[in-house]
C-alpha cells in the first residue's frame, strides 16, 4: 500500500516535470528546487530585446529618382515614428544608389531595431554621412554582438567625435567584461561635453561597480556543500537558496528519522537517503551552474544599460 503510494507520487512528479528541459538527475533535482513557489518570489530582471531579423532590400526597378529630394520627408517619417513607412518608401521607390540612400536606409532600419541590416547599410555609406554612419554603425554592431568589428571601426576613427568613440569603446569593454580596456577608455573622458557627460558618468560608474562584483562558481559550490542553498544566495539567487535549504534540510531530517527508527537497511531510509543525496548534490551542482547563469543575467542587464547610455549621445549628436 505504502509502496504503491510512493510510486503514484513519483509518477505525479515525473508527469509534472516531463516537459521541462533537464539534463540529468542532479539537474532535475536542482530544477525542482529552482522552480518552486518559494524560489520564484520577487524575481525580476531587465531583458535585452533580441535584434529583429532583416528582410529589407532596395527596389529592383530601373532607378528614376534621387533620394535627396525625399530626404526631408523621410526624416519627418522617422521623427514621427513611422519607420515602417520610411522603409516602404526606401524599399519600393526606385532611387539612384548613393551615400544618402544607404545612410537613410541604415537610419530607418536602426529605428526599426533591425541592427544587422542597419550595420550593413551604414558600412556602405560615406561622404558627408561618414561620421554618423561610423557611430550608428558601431552601435548596431555592438547590439548584434559583433564587438570586434565595432572596435575596429572605432579605433580607425579620427575626427571631432573622439570622445564619443571612447565612450563606445568603454561600452564594448564593459560588455566584454574587459575592465582594463574599459578603464583605459574611461580615463580619457573629459565630462565637458554636455551631450556625453551623463552617459560618461553612468558608464564609468558601471565599470567600477561591475568590476567589483565578480563571483566564483567554485566558492558557490563549496558554500552549498557546507550550508545547502548558501551558494545560491552568494550567486544572488536568494529565493532559490532558501528553497534549496527548505528542501535539502527536511530530507536530511527525514533520513535521520527513518534511520533511527527503522535502521539503515530499511527501504524508507534507503529511499529518503537517496532523495537527500540527489537533492544535496543537485544543490551543489545548481550553485556551481547558477553563478554562470547569474553572470549571464547580470551581463544582459549590463548590456541593456550600456546600450541605453550609448544611445542617448547618438541622438544628441546626430539626430
Amino acid at each position: 500500500m505504502r509502496r504503491l503510494g510512493v510510486l503514484i507520487l513519483a509518477l505525479c512528479l515525473c508527469t509534472g516535470l516531463a516537459a521541462q528541459k533537464v539534463q540529468g538527475p542532479f539537474s532535475f533535482a536542482d530544477h525542482l528546487m529552482s522552480t518552486s513557489f518559494l524560489s520564484r518570489a520577487g524575481k525580476t530582471h531587465i531583458k535585452v530585446d533580441p535584434p529583429k531579423p532583416t528582410d529589407f532590400s532596395f527596389c529592383a526597378d530601373e532607378p528614376s529618382a534621387h533620394v535627396s529630394g525625399d530626404m526631408d520627408f523621410i526624416g519627418y517619417l522617422l521623427d514621427s515614428g513611422l519607420k515602417e513607412d520610411a522603409l516602404t518608401l526606401l524599399g519600393e521607390k526606385a532611387y539612384f544608389p548613393s551615400d544618402t540612400l544607404e545612410y537613410l536606409a541604415g537610419l530607418a532600419l536602426f529605428d526599426d531595431r533591425q541592427f544587422e541590416g542597419a550595420a550593413k547599410h551604414f558600412s556602405l555609406s560615406g561622404g558627408s554621412f561618414a561620421e554618423p554612419s561610423t557611430f550608428l554603425g558601431a552601435y548596431s554592431l555592438i547590439h548584434t554582438g559583433r564587438l570586434d568589428e565595432a572596435e575596429y571601426a572605432l579605433f580607425s576613427y579620427s575626427g571631432e567625435y573622439g570622445e564619443l568613440a571612447n565612450l563606445q569603446l568603454a561600452g564594448i569593454g564593459l560588455i566584454r567584461r574587459d575592465f582594463d580596456a574599459c578603464r583605459k577608455a574611461v580615463s580619457s573622458f573629459t565630462y565637458s561635453d554636455h551631450r556625453l557627460a551623463e552617459s560618461e558618468t553612468a558608464i564609468a560608474g558601471l565599470c567600477n561597480d561591475i568590476s567589483k562584483r565578480r563571483k566564483s562558481a567554485f566558492a558557490a559550490a563549496c558554500m552549498s556543500a557546507v550550508v545547502p542553498g548558501a551558494g545560491k544566495v552568494y550567486a544572488g539567487k536568494t529565493g532559490e537558496g532558501v528553497a534549496a535549504f527548505m528542501t535539502v534540510v527536511p530530507l536530511a531530517v527525514i533520513t535521520a528519522e527513518q534511520w533511527k527508527k527503522n535502521g539503515p537497511a530499511h527501504w524508507g531510509t534507503i529511499l529518503s537517503g537517496a532523495l537527500f543525496s540527489l537533492f544535496y548534490i543537485g544543490n551543489i551542482y545548481g550553485s556551481y551552474v547558477s553563478v554562470g547563469i547569474q553572470e549571464q543575467v547580470i551581463g544582459d542587464e549590463v548590456k541593456a544599460l550600456v546600450m541605453y547610455n550609448l544611445h542617448i549621445p547618438l541622438r544628441s549628436c546626430f539626430r
Binding site: 512528479l13 509534472g16 518552486s36 513557489f37 527536511p250 530530507l251 528519522e257 527508527k261
Partner: peptide, 22 residues
C-alpha cells in the same frame, strides 16, 4: 506510523510541489 518528521516535512514538501506549484 509515528514518523512525525517524515509526515510533516515529507508531506509538506510533496503538497507544496504538487498542490501549490501545479
Amino acid at each position: 506510523s509515528g514518523n512525525w518528521l517524515t509526515a510533516i516535512l515529507g508531506g509538506g514538501m510533496l503538497l507544496n510541489t504538487i498542490y501549490v506549484d501545479n
